[in-house]
Simulated assay, not measured.
Amino acid sequence: MRFHTRKWIKPQDLNPNGTLFGGRLLEWIDEEAALYAIIQLENPKTVTKFMSEIDFKSSAKPGDIVEIGLDVVAFGKASLTLSCEVRNKMTRESIITIDKIVMVGLDEQGTPKAHGKTEVEFVKNRLKT
């Protein structure tokens, strides 16, 4: 799992129990998956099609730092399937796992657009030196 983004839990991120609001966490995950897929598919018109079961394993409290990790599960014709784990940066305790997030690249008409990708590419390898 590659952990890409860290978030610091602040008062505006909390639910009435004083812990991290699940909806806020899902917002962060969706944004991270979208950014990752846009870069991999080289298509800014990439959307979330599907998220599998979401498994909340623990919580986070104010002041905690969480990190969002993604792995590529598969490349489809117009899609990219990811898995996700969010964990506490300091304790490494898992907070949430999602086995399957499907992101789809679209064309100008909003229909799935084939991308021809079959493996993860790193931006540094795309740059000509």
Score class of each variant (00 low, 15 high):
89 K>N: 11
38 I>R: 14
30 D>Q: 08
38 I>V: 15
120 V>H: 02
1 M>N: 00
73 V>W: 07
9 I>L: 01
105 G>D: 11
10 K>V: 08
64 D>M: 14
25 L>F: 10
76 G>N: 09
12 Q>I: 01
32 E>F: 00
106 L>H: 07
63 G>T: 11
87 R>Q: 12
32 E>N: 13
6 R>I: 03
119 E>Q: 15
69 G>F: 01
35 L>H: 13
66 V>P: 10
1 M>Q: 03
111 T>N: 15
60 A>T: 02
53 E>L: 11
101 I>V: 07
51 M>N: 06
14 L>N: 07
9 I>N: 01
55 D>M: 02
53 E>R: 08
98 I>V: 11
85 E>W: 00
23 G>P: 05
96 I>N: 02
27 E>R: 06
11 P>I: 00
9 I>K: 03
29 I>C: 10
93 E>V: 04
11 P>K: 00
105 G>K: 01
90 M>P: 01
112 P>G: 12
101 I>M: 02
26 L>Q: 03
100 K>C: 02
3 F>A: 00
21 F>I: 03
55 D>S: 03
86 V>Q: 05
44 P>Q: 14
89 K>H: 12
5 T>Q: 09
14 L>G: 08
63 G>F: 09
27 E>C: 14
27 E>M: 09
122 F>A: 14
104 V>N: 03
8 W>M: 11
41 L>N: 08
23 G>R: 08
25 L>R: 05
121 E>R: 13
42 E>I: 02
100 K>P: 04
26 L>G: 05
29 I>H: 08
35 L>T: 12
104 V>E: 09
95 I>P: 01
65 I>N: 12
76 G>I: 10
31 E>N: 14
76 G>C: 07
73 V>S: 08
22 G>V: 01
79 S>N: 05
99 D>K: 03
89 K>W: 12
48 T>V: 05
36 Y>A: 03
109 Q>T: 15
19 T>L: 02
59 S>Y: 10
118 T>M: 05
124 K>T: 15
85 E>Q: 06
88 N>I: 06
29 I>Q: 00
54 I>R: 00
85 E>C: 01
40 Q>L: 12
7 K>G: 03
111 T>F: 12
102 V>G: 01
91 T>I: 06
23 G>H: 06
124 K>V: 15
122 F>P: 04
12 Q>C: 07
77 K>Y: 07
44 P>I: 13
33 A>D: 10
119 E>T: 13
119 E>W: 00
51 M>V: 02
40 Q>P: 15
41 L>A: 03
114 A>Q: 13
89 K>D: 05
74 A>M: 09
42 E>G: 07
127 L>R: 14
104 V>D: 06
110 G>P: 11
81 T>R: 14
56 F>W: 14
125 N>E: 14
77 K>F: 08
65 I>D: 04
88 N>L: 06
89 K>Y: 10
92 R>K: 14
5 T>A: 11
11 P>F: 00
86 V>G: 07
86 V>E: 11
101 I>H: 01
75 F>W: 11
34 A>C: 15
106 L>K: 07
88 N>C: 08
127 L>A: 13
15 N>D: 08
116 G>I: 05
40 Q>K: 13
96 I>P: 01
88 N>G: 06
2 R>W: 00
23 G>F: 00
62 P>F: 09
38 I>H: 10
